[in-house]
């Protein structure tokens, strides 16, 4: 029997050069769940996804996906694992020199020997799932931001992966596209039996669709819980985040000397 947890992250630390980004993260994602990772911009959420995808290796700790330690895989093992993962990049990252159809067909053509008409059927199915079957022949430049995101989603699920990661799927979308994308993530997760890992800072939208939430701040998990628990949470950080307050545990001001000192009005401590 396979483990219930598809993604298991234990004690992971990572830094770019001397600057630590993650300082000991523990996180699990159960099969069939939509798990959100939230936190303010630049707190290392995207880094976490790159660790899971094996694009970077952790300094400490282990990242396990489907029981395999990602950092220990060689190139072939990593590529084998990545075929079972889909990833939706922040702005879609569609291949701009290919049509929507070819974008979705890309992995099928690279990794399978399916005949062209089978590929055609599969691609149209995936595009239908995101409601863009009619846009198959358009080029990425002709799509709106929301549509591009949906095409990228169709591309991410082309090989029926077990895990789909979303990097800021809600960034820069209008309210309608926002709702559409949120619903799609939930629906695809349920109908295709995926596990979804959503990195976002859009609290309201994501709380509607997720099963479990992790809050990352300053390189560590500061809070976790189901959507309801998070809404009801009275942790100051979570409260500030959920309600979008300007000041709180995450200060409005970038660390600086005392204001009076900077203006030269300081009484005692003139630097």
């Amino acid at each position: 029997m396979q483990s219930d947890n598809l993604v298991e992250i234990a004690g992971v630390a990572f830094g770019y050069g001397a600057r630590p980004v993650l300082k000991g993260i523990n996180l699990t994602a159960r099969r069939g769940q939509v798990v959100a990772i939230m936190g303010s911009s630049g707190c290392g959420k995207t880094t976490l996804l790159r660790l899971i995808g094996g694009q970077i290796k952790p300094g400490q700790g282990t990242v396990r996906v489907a029981g395999e330690s990602v950092a220990e895989l060689d190139q072939n093992g990593l590529y084998r694992l990545r075929r079972k993962m889909g990833m939706l990049f922040q702005f879609g990252a569609l291949f701009t020199d290919m049509s929507v159809f070819d974008n979705v067909a890309f992995q099928l053509r690279e990794h399978t020997d399916l005949p062209e008409d089978a590929i055609r059927d599969l691609v149209l199915m995936k595009l239908n799932a995101v409601g863009l079957r009619g846009a198959a022949q358009l080029m990425p430049a002709e799509l709106s931001g929301g549509m591009a995101r949906r095409v990228a989603l169709a591309r991410a699920i082309a090989l029926d992966p077990m895990l789909v990661m979303y990097d800021e799927p809600f960034a820069g979308l209008d309210p309608i596209s926002l709702g559409v994308t949120g619903n799609l993530i939930r629906r695809l997760t349920d109908t295709l039996g995926l596990t979804s890992l959503v990195v976002t800072h859009d609290v309201q939208e994501s709380l509607k669709i997720v099963d479990y939430v992790y809050f990352v701040s300053d390189g560590v998990i500061v809070a976790e819980g189901t959507a309801d628990e998070i809404r009801a949470s009275d942790l100051p950080y979570v409260h500030q985040f959920v309600h979008g307050e300007a000041d709180g545990p995450v200060p409005f001001h970038y660390p600086a000397r005392a204001y009076a000192d900077d203006l030269g009005l300081g009484g005692g401590r003139n630097a």
């Binding site: 990545r82 291949f95 701009t96 990794h111």
Partner: peptide, 25 residues
């Protein structure tokens, strides 16, 4: 310009995540 833009818009990263080596492809 083409390769640089593909990198800037994460197309190369996306390709890598799709288990396709961008150097080869």
């Amino acid at each position: 310009a083409e390769i640089g833009l593909m990198k800037a818009t994460e197309q190369l990263s996306a390709m890598e995540m799709m288990a396709v080596d961008p150097i080869a492809r």
